[in-house]
Design a protein around this nucleic acid. Structure first.
Length: 116
DNA sequence: CGTATGACGCATT
DNA sequence: TAATGCGCCATAC
């Protein structure tokens, strides 16, 4: 874990229930443009109990095509799909309709992230 | 120190 | 819509 991971976790915590964000989008918001892969790394390193008492909704992060990035049918894939569906996010196969479910932070949310 | 490998993204075909 | 190729960068060896 390092400061970049922490910034990424804070950004992911801002994704509202029922919405998703892309790896690249999270990277940009976290002040790490072009580093989508690092977001994947950071999410893989999320403490199981959450961070500083708060859960990190890692499952709300998908790739730029709106697809879950784990191998279809894998344990990880199924867990992410189930958690999303529990939040009323519609998952068809591995795909989520971004025009409907992608998070679009307003100015207040952007400022909040920059504070952290 | 070079190489390979990823929970990625984008342009091109 | 799908498949490639290339850029990206932290890690592992």
């Amino acid at each position: 874990m390092n400061s970049k991971h922490i910034k990424i976790w804070q950004t992911v915590q801002a994704i509202p229930l029922g919405k998703v964000a892309c790896y690249g989008q999270v990277a940009d918001l976290a002040g790490l443009p072009g580093r989508a892969r690092l977001v994947g790394k950071a999410l893989g390193a999320v403490p199981k109990n959450g961070w500083r008492g708060a859960k990190v909704p890692w499952y709300r992060v998908v790739n730029s095509q709106g697809k879950i990035s784990f191998a279809p049918g894998s344990e990880h894939f199924n867990r992410q799909r189930d958690l999303l569906q529990d939040e009323q996010v519609v998952v068809i196969g591995a795909r989520i309709k971004l025009p409907t479910f992608q998070w679009q932070p307003d100015l207040a949310e952007l400022l909040f992230i920059l504070e952290g």
